[in-house]
Amino acid sequence: MSMPDAQRLKAFVVKRLSSLPTWDAQRLPDDGLKLVGAGLLDSLGFLELMTDVEQEFGLQCDFSSSEPEVFTTLGGFVAQFSKA
């Protein structure tokens, strides 16, 4: 599978996040947005998001070389999948 376009991937993730009851519509989805630990997603929600992205883009992600404080932000998460 070829590398997905980062913008398309980010749009997919933001759309998915915006459907959550915990989503704050007032907040801009910048790259520093914390996905976990700030009330948006819990650890299971993070895995569900990961699975959705894997299914949508046909990817298998590997987080072994990245840092939790990075891949749990919107920008870091998208970047991780963009290079998967």
């Binding site: 298998q60 992600c61 072994s64």
Partner: peptide, 12 residues
């Protein structure tokens, strides 16, 4: 969780 995230490599 770690298995699903690819974090349990042999000998990790």
């Amino acid at each position: 969780f770690m298995r699903r995230m690819g974090l349990l490599k042999p000998g990790a």
